[in-house]
Computed example of a mutant assay.
Amino acid sequence: MRIGILALQGAFTEHKIMLEGLGAECFEIRQLKDLYSGPVNGLVFPGGESTVMDKLLRESGLFSPLRGMLEKGIPVLATCAGLILLAEKKEDGTPPCFGTLPVTIRRNAYGRQLGSFQETAPFEGIGDFPMTFIRAPLIVSAAGQVKVLAVTRRYEMTQGISQEFPAAVLWQNQLAMSFHPELSGDPSVHAYFLNMVQNAASLSEGRPA
């Protein structure tokens, strides 16, 4: 399996280390020519600064071909800023980037970087998983067909209540989360993603997944 990792900016190296540790072949996507250096079985959109990534995607010419890949169903793992790139809507009304994932997000909802935290919670299909949140976007809402795989409890100071919000979601071949699984030391989420990639490859070849 050959996985392309968006490497314009952000925490892409940790994803590469995690995936290669599971036996995947990875390559970094920095220029348009990188997309055509060989087969692409899956994509990773890492954390970082989503506004900077959006700008660089368009300036580099990567935006349209990557969006085409998403629309064709190539599996993607998107974390933190990567989730923002996929989100169909932003609560502040600013235009989406790819807009292929039917969720609404609120940027930097979990506080500043110094307020980062880790919470262990159940992740469907994996079990308890340590979720690291760093200036993370909040998934405010998800369309009915979006599957919620994990939730987190975020304390709402204005209402004095603890409310559950999606922390990881799956829609078609798009796996996205607010947190950073690549910083957990636990490869389970990346193994889950590689299983998605394998299933997609099997289906494209006409074999049972």
Rank of each mutant, 00 (worst) to 15 (best):
E28H: 08
V151R: 09
I126R: 03
K55N: 03
S50P: 07
P166L: 02
P96K: 14
S116R: 14
G4D: 03
V146Y: 09
L56I: 07
C26P: 03
A167N: 01
S188Y: 01
P65L: 09
E91S: 14
F133D: 00
F45Q: 00
K72N: 07
V76E: 04
M1F: 05
S50M: 06
R30L: 05
Q113T: 06
V148M: 15
D34N: 06
P75E: 03
I139Q: 01
A191D: 15
N108K: 08
Q172P: 04
T94W: 08
V169P: 01
P96G: 00
G23L: 05
E71A: 14
F193V: 08
I139M: 13
M53C: 03
G68S: 15
A136Q: 04
R67Q: 10
A87E: 07
G127F: 03
I105H: 00
N173S: 13
A109L: 11
C97D: 01
I84S: 01
P95A: 10
T94R: 13
M196Y: 12
A200Y: 04
S64Q: 07
P181C: 12
V148T: 11
G10P: 12
T120D: 04
V151Y: 13
A87Y: 00
M18E: 07
A24G: 06
C97K: 00
H15S: 03
T120L: 11
V140G: 04
M177S: 00
G48Q: 08
L70D: 02
R112H: 14
A191R: 10
A24K: 04
E49V: 15
I105M: 06
R107S: 14
V40T: 10
A87W: 01
I126E: 08
H15W: 10
F63K: 10
A7Q: 01
E205C: 12
G42D: 00
M69S: 15
K72R: 13
L203T: 08
G99D: 08
N195T: 13
G42K: 11
R107I: 14
R30V: 06
E88R: 06
P208W: 15
G68N: 12
